[in-house]
Amino acid sequence: MLRVTKLRYGFPIGLLLFFYLDGILGAAFPKQLFNYPYTMSSYLVVLWLVYSIYFEDQITIPLGIWAAVAGGLFDLYYTGIFGIFVFVFPIVVALTRACYKAFPINFLSGLLVYFIDITVVCALSYFGNLVVHLTSASFADMLVYSLAPTLAYNLAAYVILYFPVQWLFNRLKN
């Protein structure tokens, strides 16, 4: 079904754009995003994947594979440690799909699901970095200095972009 709509171009372009924005926003506004000791990690690429699940309707995009590709690029290009996000992104997609089946998704319940998604991404990336000794931060530090600001940033992005992206998906589907 993906083949017949404009989404076949729109979805990958959006995914790549959000992927690059994650890194570029961090470089362009470091004072705002990385205000020591608080660090906000931008996961806009996850936001795009989650939006795709909410707005795809009958068109089933092979999101698991796209998530793994985006995760692989994220690992190689941004972190340099392959093997964390390449698994975390598909897990998030599976989780969101499960939630989508369990209850109706609207703006507010979608926000809560995205809250859970970001928490999962943060926690798993923290444990991944912990086991390969790239960080020695304690779990409590992670909650206060990393998870809380990251949630604030990403949920704000969700609220701001929800309606524009919904409009965009509706345009691309027809």
């Binding site: 690059y20 890194g23 961090g26 470089a27 931008s42 290009y77 972190t79 970095n129």
Partner: peptide
């Protein structure tokens, strides 16, 4: 020129 920054709290890294 710095073109990107790793969006992660655990690696303070720029590209």
């Amino acid at each position: 020129t710095v073109i990107a920054r790793t969006p992660s709290s655990w690696q303070d890294q720029v590209i």
